[in-house]
């Protein structure tokens, strides 16, 4: 949890899946770390109002639902269950 204070984000590769976890107003939200548009990394984006913008082409996603909010993305990104166990943030990447 020390890596994820309010407003912070952290990316990690779990098996073959890039995951991005964001602390939005003290809520942890986990999504795919890869943009659904052209597979660019999302973790260099900036989070505002519970949404993240891909810094390359401008696709924007709702961190809670994964919904694509702006072109050029039309497809959502995956969202994952997240929990805290003994100050460790755990993400479940299995569907």
């Amino acid at each position: 949890m020390a890596d994820l204070p309010r407003g912070a984000k952290k990316h990690a590769k779990i098996d073959d899946t890039w995951v991005l976890v964001c602390n939005v107003n003290d809520r942890l939200l986990a999504v795919s770390g890869v943009c659904s548009h052209q597979a660019k990394p999302l973790w260099n984006g900036r989070v505002r109002g519970g949404k993240i913008t891909c810094p390359v082409h401008g696709a924007r996603f709702d961190l809670e639902t994964g919904e694509a909010l702006d072109l050029p993305a039309t497809k959502p990104i995956a969202t994952y269950a997240v929990r805290v166990a003994d100050d460790w943030v755990e993400v479940c990447v299995e569907s």
């Binding site: 548009h37 260099n44 505002r48 810094p55 390359v56």
Partner: peptide, 17 residues
Amino acid sequence: MLRAPGSEGYATEFKCP
């Protein structure tokens, strides 16, 4: 267009898709 109409966000570059 380098960014979608009506959109806002943060960019490290303005890259054409």
